[in-house]
Design a protein around this nucleic acid. Structure first.
Lengths: 163, 163
DNA sequence: TCATACCACTTGCGAAGTGCAAGTGGTCGA
DNA sequence: TCGACCACTTGCACTTCGCAAGTGGTATGA
């Protein structure tokens, strides 16, 4: 089967799927912010994503197998978005992006706390986090320790210290 | 100093610099293909980058400190582009992108060979490769072993086997 | 020295992506 | 049954992208 797109290079193909200014922001918010519906993703967006762009990205990411959508039993109209195994495997990539951004951009201290923890924790922490994401998004058994909780707590502590 | 851009999140800021379909392709070709001039980057581009887009990216990447340009002593008009420490530190990111693309996209076997080696080699191999890039681009001393050569040889072997 | 090829980069233009504001049509709670 | 809510669409101005052709300076060989 011939590879589609501009070339068969794996880096290129990754860029073709994720190389825009919003796709990974959406994945990030699902992953680290546990935002699961259109409304949550739109309202709590740190970067102020436009509603049409969000709708478009949810559609594309779902079509390419990085997200799934299931109806909310509480609310007919609402959909609940989940990560898939493919997007859960983006954890190391996002961790590295955070680490790089922390060093080479003017990142704010509070928002860098999670990136810092992930960097310090290394591959073992990423694995634990991925296991937890499999629990939250794919129905896998709940792991003992919550990395998600630790990241969240560190972030909230940093925000409190700032204020 | 307040962070610029959409938000101070390090992942977001990384995306604002590199989140498009071409910037990392240019870095990849400089890094793994050792293409150092506009002409080399344009002619050997696997993905067929457009000349104006290449010119624009070289300008932007240089402006944001990911590349430097110095004149070619052999040829008045030509410039030689080099990676900087910041872009050399993208090695782990590109390695992960390759690894992810290899698993989750229809990457071609030949072009995946380098990604596979980088993935197997892990952090130690990345460090060695970065050391070598510092030699090639920043004038650091030449390291003993050439990762670049090994990657290149593996790629060429794969291409030969295909033909 | 002059024609020719080369080379880095620009220009023009249609197509696609982005940002913003308003709208739509179904759903929920009182 | 009314009004608030919610997921998502539409319309429009603006920017970016992709492609093809062009421009003007530079090396080269007769």
């Amino acid at each position: 089967m011939p590879p589609k797109g501009r070339s068969g290079c794996p880096i290129n193909l990754t860029l073709e799927q994720l190389g825009d200014r919003w796709s990974l922001i959406v994945v990030r918010d699902l992953m680290f912010g546990n935002r699961r519906t259109y409304g949550e993703l739109l309202a709590a967006s740190e970067e102020g994503i436009a509603s049409n762009v969000l709708a478009d990205r949810l559609k594309r990411l779902t079509a390419s197998g990085l997200l799934t959508r299931r109806p909310d039993p509480q609310h007919q109209q609402k959909g609940i978005y989940s990560l898939t195994e493919a997007s859960i495997q983006l954890v190391p990539l996002l961790a590295h992006m955070g680490a790089w951004g922390r060093r080479h951009t003017r990142a704010s201290k509070e928002l860098s706390v999670r990136a810092e923890l992930l960097e310090e924790g290394g591959a073992r922490l990423w694995s634990a986090f991925m296991e937890e994401l499999r629990h939250l998004h794919l129905g896998a058994p709940r792991p003992r320790r919550s990395v998600f909780g630790a990241l969240q707590a560190a972030y909230e502590k940093a925000m409190a210290q700032k204020a």
